[in-house]
Computed example of a mutant assay.
Amino acid sequence: MEIRRCCCHPPFSRCVLVHEKTTSLCPGDGQYGHTDRADKHFLLPDSSEVWLNAASKLQYTQKDIGVREVWLDGEAWFHVRHTAENSRFIVHTYDKLSVEVLGTQFNVNNVGDKIAVVLQEGSVKLNITEQQGQTPTQLYLRPGEALRYNKTDGAYTKSKTDAEKAAAWTRGQLIMEDYTVADAIQFMQQVFDRHITVKDKKTLRYSISGSMPISYNADTMLIQFEKAFNTRFFRQDK
């Protein structure tokens, strides 16, 4: 584990309460998911590749030769294969945002109240539907660009980013740039479905930068976060 910089570091007396809870995923026809707390690699029927993060689900369908569609709940990295028919590949997020491509590599994180799309290679078109029946707003990303969409108010921003870092989780690394306790809480909820209670809201703003290996053992990951943030986590069964 490498921690390069700490901001507003909390004293060790700070404590965070972790509620234990376990859920399972049951993939069916055309669905990809897993109960393991680790990322999984899948090959879709069109030979596109998907790395599905822990506690994530993906449903694939191809109604006709011109359109391939998936519905994502969680986080996934895609390497979409271009087809001879130039069929579109559309990622739906169960919200007002969808991602449309022909052949490319990109990451989609649909967790919590935000959606983040990071493009590594090729190009993508983003369709944002503000109200049902309206023509969607269309945005395009170039390699090294990201779009972050707020599900609550519909606000979005486009910015430059390091696409390699966005896909680091597929290589078992957690890259932290101004990574806050709030980010760690979201990670624990996404990967392990552990709900964390913070009594002192100031704790949420404590941030660090660096990297650490991702462990798909909840207790090990909590210990790593304790060391990184100099914060103590207390477990409580729920």
Score class of each variant (00 low, 15 high):
123 S>Q: 12
155 A>E: 13
74 G>I: 00
60 Y>D: 03
174 L>Q: 02
20 E>P: 09
132 Q>H: 07
175 I>K: 05
44 L>D: 00
14 R>I: 14
63 K>W: 11
129 T>G: 06
87 S>N: 06
45 P>M: 05
195 H>G: 09
99 V>H: 02
95 D>V: 13
75 E>P: 03
153 D>A: 04
107 N>V: 03
90 I>L: 05
67 V>F: 10
216 Y>M: 15
195 H>C: 09
164 E>R: 10
174 L>I: 06
75 E>N: 04
106 F>E: 01
208 I>V: 05
196 I>F: 07
146 A>P: 06
98 S>R: 04
20 E>R: 14
135 T>S: 14
60 Y>E: 07
4 R>P: 08
62 Q>R: 06
159 S>V: 13
116 A>R: 14
115 I>T: 03
95 D>Q: 10
231 T>D: 10
22 T>K: 15
237 D>C: 13
200 D>I: 04
190 Q>H: 09
92 H>W: 03
91 V>D: 01
159 S>C: 13
164 E>P: 08
67 V>Q: 11
230 N>D: 10
181 V>Y: 00
111 V>A: 07
73 D>I: 08
162 D>A: 06
70 V>K: 02
65 I>L: 14
149 Y>D: 02
125 K>P: 07
147 L>H: 01
171 R>Q: 13
101 V>H: 00
40 K>W: 05
173 Q>Y: 15
171 R>I: 07
88 R>S: 09
12 F>Y: 15
52 L>E: 01
154 G>Y: 00
122 G>T: 02
174 L>N: 02
77 W>M: 07
25 L>E: 13
207 S>R: 04
13 S>C: 13
173 Q>H: 15
117 V>T: 05
104 T>R: 02
42 F>C: 05
86 N>K: 08
216 Y>T: 10
16 V>W: 01
110 N>V: 06
150 N>S: 12
62 Q>E: 06
66 G>P: 08
69 E>F: 09
138 Q>S: 09
90 I>G: 00
61 T>G: 09
59 Q>Y: 06
18 V>P: 01
61 T>W: 08
39 D>L: 15
120 Q>F: 08
189 Q>V: 07
158 K>N: 09
143 P>E: 07
35 T>G: 12
61 T>C: 08
119 L>W: 00
65 I>K: 14
130 E>F: 13
65 I>Q: 14
46 D>N: 00
51 W>N: 12
121 E>H: 11
126 L>G: 00
157 T>V: 06
229 F>A: 02
212 M>H: 10
61 T>A: 09
47 S>N: 11
199 K>M: 10
166 A>S: 04
188 M>W: 02
61 T>V: 12
149 Y>S: 03
104 T>M: 03
82 H>G: 11
214 I>H: 01
236 Q>E: 11
1 M>T: 10
54 A>F: 00
161 T>C: 11
26 C>D: 09
60 Y>I: 06
86 N>H: 13
155 A>N: 10
216 Y>Q: 14
202 K>F: 12
65 I>A: 15
203 T>D: 15
50 V>Y: 00
1 M>R: 14
61 T>P: 05
120 Q>T: 13
99 V>C: 01
53 N>R: 03
82 H>V: 09
219 D>V: 14
74 G>A: 04
